[in-house]
C-alpha cells in the first residue's frame, strides 16, 4: 500500500508540538494532576501549617 505518494505533504509534514501534546493523554494526565497538586493542595497546606500560634 504505497498510496502515500498521493498525499505527500500531508503525511510527511511533522505534527506540530501542540498537537502532539494534545494527542498524548498520559502527558496531559501528568500535567492535569501536577497543576492542582502544586498550586492548590501543596501551596494551600503550606499556608495552613505556617499559621502562627495564638499569643
Amino acid at each position: 500500500m504505497n498510496e502515500t505518494t498521493n498525499q505527500p505533504d500531508e503525511k510527511k509534514e511533522r505534527i506540530p508540538a501542540m498537537q502532539s501534546l494534545l494527542d498524548n493523554p498520559f502527558l496531559l494526565l501528568f500535567i492535569g494532576v501536577a497543576m492542582p497538586t502544586v498550586f492548590y493542595l501543596m501551596w494551600g497546606i503550606m499556608e495552613i501549617v505556617t499559621i502562627p500560634v495564638a499569643p
Binding site: L21, L28, G32, M35, P36, F39, Y40, G44
Partner: peptide, 12 residues
C-alpha cells in the same frame, strides 16, 4: 486543554 490545566484550581 485550558480545563486540564486550570479548572481544578477552582476548588478554592
Amino acid at each position: 486543554l485550558l480545563y486540564i490545566f486550570f479548572l481544578q484550581l477552582a476548588s478554592a
